[in-house]
Simulated scan of single mutants.
Amino acid sequence: MIGRLRGVLIHKQPPHLMLDVQGVGYELEAPLSTFYDLPAEGVEVTLHTHLHVREDAHVLYGFAGAQERALFRSLIRVNGVGAKMALAILSGMTTEAFSRCVMDNDITQLTRLPGIGRKTAERLVIEMRDRVAALGEGAFLPGVTGGGAPARPADPVSDAVAALISLGYKPQEASRLVSLVEEEARTSEELIRLALKSTLNK
């Protein structure tokens, strides 16, 4: 099991990134909350990882903090919640916000995340109650190391739209959400953050 990687960030385009670890390029998928804290390409970074084994592929997921990874591992054990939905949940809210939704039975807030209907939200509340209590109701704990200015993407709007689509939003809805906040941000990470925030504040 690969539990942690430290290497040079050589590519990032949500939800995909690549680390060069002593000459070996590791492809990972990560929640948007991790992307918000990534340094510029070319800078060293440390990520907590989870290797998800499927019949057709082995997918490596990266997380900025150990608590975020622990929540991901708990989520994929819930019936009907796969890795893609777990990433969408972690991308749409912090571990603290998710814990609060579960403990407060806040079904409405959970259904605002892409791909989560009422039945799935109810299942999450029931099955995750004991697990989030065990994880602790701490805020997201950053684990990303490295510094430098964020890399400037060639087209932050297109990157933001593509990232939202990868989370389960329909292309038209993703474009609409990004267009609403386009004038408020310059990077794809900022656009994604504001777009997701707007869906949860409805």
Rank of each mutant, 00 (worst) to 15 (best):
M1H: 15
G3H: 08
R4H: 12
G7T: 03
I10T: 10
I10Y: 00
K12I: 11
Q13K: 14
Q13V: 09
Q13T: 13
P14A: 10
D20G: 03
V24C: 15
V24L: 15
V24R: 11
Y26H: 10
E27G: 10
E27Q: 13
L28P: 01
A30Q: 02
P31S: 07
F35E: 01
D37P: 07
L38M: 12
P39Y: 06
E41F: 04
G42M: 10
H48A: 06
L51V: 13
E55A: 11
D56L: 12
H58W: 10
L60C: 12
G62C: 03
F63Q: 06
A64S: 11
G65W: 02
Q67N: 12
E68W: 00
A70Q: 06
L71C: 01
F72S: 00
F72Q: 00
L75G: 00
G80F: 08
K84M: 05
M85N: 04
A88V: 09
I89N: 00
T95Y: 01
T95E: 02
E96V: 08
E96P: 09
A97E: 11
A97F: 03
F98V: 04
R100G: 07
D104C: 03
D104H: 07
I107C: 10
Q109L: 09
T111D: 10
R112D: 05
R112L: 13
R112N: 13
T120H: 10
T120P: 03
A121Q: 11
L124I: 12
V125E: 03
I126Q: 15
I126H: 13
I126W: 10
E127L: 15
E127K: 08
E127F: 15
E127A: 15
D130L: 14
R131N: 14
R131P: 03
V132P: 00
A133W: 12
G136K: 03
E137N: 14
G138T: 14
F140G: 07
L141S: 14
P142I: 10
G143H: 12
V144N: 01
V144T: 09
G148R: 09
P150R: 12
A151S: 15
P153R: 03
A154W: 05
A154E: 05
D159F: 04
D159S: 09
A163E: 11
L164S: 05
I165V: 15
I165E: 14
S166P: 00
E173I: 06
E173G: 01
R176T: 07
V178A: 01
S179A: 12
S179N: 06
L180E: 11
E183T: 14
E183Y: 08
E184N: 14
S188M: 08
E190P: 04
L191S: 01
I192C: 08
R193N: 08
L194C: 08
L194M: 11
A195T: 07
L196V: 06
K197Y: 13
K197L: 14
K197Q: 13
S198Q: 08
N201H: 11
K202C: 14
